[in-house]
Deep mutational scan, measured.
Amino acid sequence: AQASVVANQLIPINTYLTLVMMRSEVVTPVGIPAEDIPRLVSMQVNRAVPLGTTLMPDMVKGYA
């Protein structure tokens, strides 16, 4: 199964992502692939992302 990117903490709206904020986990539904974690660093979330939430492409500015 493919691992997705999951929030490792509460990520406030407009926060620039860093490695410590994200982890990879096999979840349903599938979100942003874990292999894209390096690409996500320094990208901004466009909403608050609670701890344990799967990151979806529409949550990250400029990802989709």
Rank of each mutant, 00 (worst) to 15 (best):
K61S: 15
A48E: 15
N14R: 06
T28E: 14
E35K: 04
M22A: 00
L10W: 11
L19T: 14
N8R: 08
E25L: 05
L51I: 13
D36I: 07
P38K: 09
I32E: 00
R47K: 10
A34M: 09
N14K: 05
G52C: 04
P57A: 15
L55C: 02
L19W: 12
P57C: 05
L19Q: 11
G62H: 10
Y63L: 05
L10T: 10
G52M: 07
P12N: 07
N46K: 08
L19A: 14
N46Y: 11
A3H: 10
V27W: 02
S42I: 05
A48R: 06
V41G: 03
V60N: 01
G62W: 06
N14Y: 14
G52F: 14
I37M: 15
M22G: 00
L51K: 10
A3Y: 10
A7S: 13
L17W: 01
V30G: 11
T28N: 09
I11L: 09
R39A: 07
A64W: 03
P12Y: 04
Q9R: 08
L17D: 01
V49Y: 02
D36T: 07
K61H: 10
T18N: 10
L17S: 00
I11Q: 00
S24K: 05
I37D: 00
I13V: 15
T54I: 11
V5Q: 01
G31D: 01
L55T: 00
A1C: 03
M43T: 09
I32N: 01
A34Y: 11
V6D: 00
M59W: 13
R23Y: 15
G52R: 05
V30Q: 09
V41A: 06
A1R: 02
I37G: 05
V49D: 00
A1M: 10
V27T: 13
A7Q: 00
L55S: 00
P50T: 11
I13E: 15
V45E: 00
E35M: 05
G52H: 07
T53F: 11
P33D: 13
M43N: 09
S24W: 10
I11N: 00
R23G: 14
T18G: 11
V45K: 00
P50V: 08
V5F: 00
V26K: 03
P50M: 09
V60C: 02
R47Q: 10
N46S: 13
M21P: 00
M43W: 06
L17H: 00
P50S: 12
S24N: 13
V30S: 15
P38T: 10
Q2N: 14
Y63M: 05
A3N: 14
T53S: 13
I11E: 00
V6L: 12
L17R: 00
V26C: 04
R47A: 12
L19I: 12
V60W: 01
G52N: 13
A34Q: 12
A48G: 09
K61D: 08
L40M: 11
N14D: 14
Y63V: 07
R23C: 04
S42D: 09
K61P: 15
L40V: 10
T54S: 06
T18L: 10
A34R: 04
V49E: 01
P50F: 12
A1H: 05
V27D: 02
P50A: 15
L17P: 03
V6C: 03
M59P: 01
L10V: 12
T54F: 02
Q44T: 07
A64Y: 03
Y16I: 08
V49L: 12
M59G: 04
S42C: 05
V6G: 01
L10R: 06
L17V: 03
L55E: 01
N8L: 08
P57E: 07
P57I: 07
P38L: 06
M43A: 10
V41S: 08
V49W: 02
M56I: 11
S24R: 05
I11A: 01
V6Q: 05
V27N: 03
A1F: 08
M59I: 08
A64L: 13
V30W: 05
K61L: 11
M59F: 07
V26P: 07
R23S: 09
V41W: 04
A1W: 04
Y16L: 13
A64N: 12
V27E: 02
V27P: 02
S42P: 02
D58C: 04
P57N: 05
R39S: 07
G62Y: 06
R47T: 14
M21Y: 13
T28F: 04
D58K: 05
A48D: 14
V27H: 05
L51H: 11
E25H: 04
N14L: 15
I32R: 01
L17Y: 00
N8C: 03
Q9W: 07
A34K: 09
N8E: 10
N8G: 09
E25F: 03
N46G: 12
R39Y: 15
M22H: 00
L19D: 08
V30K: 04
Q2H: 09
L55W: 01
V60P: 02
N14P: 00
V26G: 05
V5P: 01
P50E: 14
V6Y: 02
Q9Y: 14
I11R: 00
I13C: 04
Y16S: 11
V30M: 07
I11P: 01
N8D: 15
T18S: 15
L51A: 10
S42T: 08
V5W: 02
M43H: 12
V41C: 03
A34N: 06
P38V: 07
G31M: 03
L51M: 13
S4G: 04
T18W: 03
S24G: 12
V41H: 07
R47W: 04
R23V: 08
P57F: 06
V45M: 08
L10K: 10
I32P: 00
M43Q: 13
V26A: 14
T15K: 05
P33L: 10
L40S: 00
I37W: 02
G52Y: 13
A64K: 07
I37L: 15
V5G: 02
A48K: 11
T18F: 04
D36V: 06
Q44W: 04
P33V: 08
A1G: 15
M43Y: 11
S4H: 01
N14T: 03
E35D: 11
I32M: 04
M22E: 00
M59V: 11
T28Y: 06
R23I: 08
I11F: 02
Y16R: 08
L55P: 00
D36C: 05
L10S: 10
I37C: 03
S24V: 10
I11M: 09
R47V: 07
M21R: 03
P38I: 05
G62P: 05
V41R: 06
R47E: 13
I13M: 12
L19R: 05
I32C: 03
V60I: 13
I37Q: 15
P12Q: 08
N8I: 05
M59A: 08
A34P: 09
T28I: 11
N14M: 13
V30D: 15
A3P: 13
V45S: 14
Q2M: 13
I11Y: 01
N46T: 14
Q9G: 06
